[in-house]
C-alpha cells in the first residue's frame, strides 16, 4: 500500500490538522516510510489469531449509580481559552 497526497489531505482533514503544502509533501514521504516499515506484519499469517485489545483479563468493571459532586463551575471554566459568562465560547459553526 502506498499513501498518496490525496490520502494525506483526507487524513489531515479527519485529524483536524491544517497542514500547509510543504507539510503535506513532507508527510507523504514520512508516512510512506513508516507504513512500509509496518508492512512487515504481512509476513505473518494471522487468520486464526484472535486480536488482543486488552492485555489484562478483566471484565464487568462497574460503578454504582450514586451521585457524586460535580466541579464548581469556575473550575470547569478555569482553563477555558474563551468564555461567555458560564459557557465555553467557540467561533461560529458552519
Amino acid at each position: 500500500m502506498s499513501i498518496t497526497k490525496k490520502d494525506i489531505i483526507h487524513v489531515a482533514d479527519l485529524a483536524r490538522l491544517g497542514l500547509n503544502d510543504e507539510e503535506t509533501i513532507k508527510y507523504e514521504k514520512e508516512l510512506n516510510d513508516v507504513l512500509n516499515f509496518m508492512e512487515k506484519l504481512n509476513e505473518l499469517n494471522t487468520d486464526d489469531v484472535e486480536p488482543t485489545s486488552h492485555v489484562l483479563d478483566i471484565h464487568n468493571v462497574f460503578r454504582s449509580d450514586v451521585v457524586e459532586d460535580s466541579l464548581d463551575v469556575e473550575d470547569v471554566l478555569a482553563n477555558a481559552p474563551d468564555r461567555d459568562e458560564d459557557y465555553f465560547k467557540v467561533p461560529s459553526i458552519l
Binding site: 485529524a15 483536524r16 490538522l17 491544517g18 497542514l19 507539510e23 467557540v90 467561533p91 461560529s92 459553526i93 458552519l94
Partner: peptide, 13 residues
C-alpha cells in the same frame, strides 16, 4: 479563525 473547524485545525497544527 472565524470558524470552529478552522480554529481546531489551525490550533492543532
Amino acid at each position: 479563525q472565524n470558524d470552529v473547524t478552522d480554529m481546531m485545525s489551525v490550533t492543532r497544527d
